[in-house]
């Protein structure tokens, strides 16, 4: 599922994949009213993404959509070596 990535000097990064959530809709009459904040909503699809990960001694790439068919608990937190 997740292919291993080689650790080089560059910091591996990922990002959202698939269609953009905040694609600017063409509004011919009014010019940009507000910045559309892409907010996730319950009952809607989770935005797909790909991100490098550390998993049991290996560096891998994780793609959220690879987990379709399973329940996922996705937990963001402020930072490594912090206290809570």
């Amino acid at each position: 599922m997740a292919e291993e990535i080689k650790a080089g000097c560059a910091r591996p990064t990922g990002g959202p994949v698939g269609e953009k959530v905040d694609d600017k809709k063409e509004t011919p009459k009014q010019e940009v009213i507000k910045e559309v904040k892409a907010m996730v909503t319950v009952g809607k699809k989770a935005p797909d993404f790909i991100a490098p990960a550390y998993h049991k001694g290996k560096f891998i790439n994780v793609k959220l959509s690879d987990y379709l068919g399973k329940w996922v608990s996705l937990c963001f937190y402020p930072g490594d070596f912090t206290f809570v």
């Binding site: 996730v40 608990s73 937990c75 963001f76 402020p78």
Partner: peptide, 28 residues
């Protein structure tokens, strides 16, 4: 990715403690 999920705190440059439960269809 955190920005797309609305949990990236730009001023601090870190993510908030956001926890998302996603079902087998990819629905939050």
């Amino acid at each position: 990715v955190g920005s797309v999920f609305g949990v990236y705190l730009e001023d601090a440059g870190v993510e908030a403690r956001g926890r998302f439960l996603i079902d087998p269809d990819g629905i939050i």
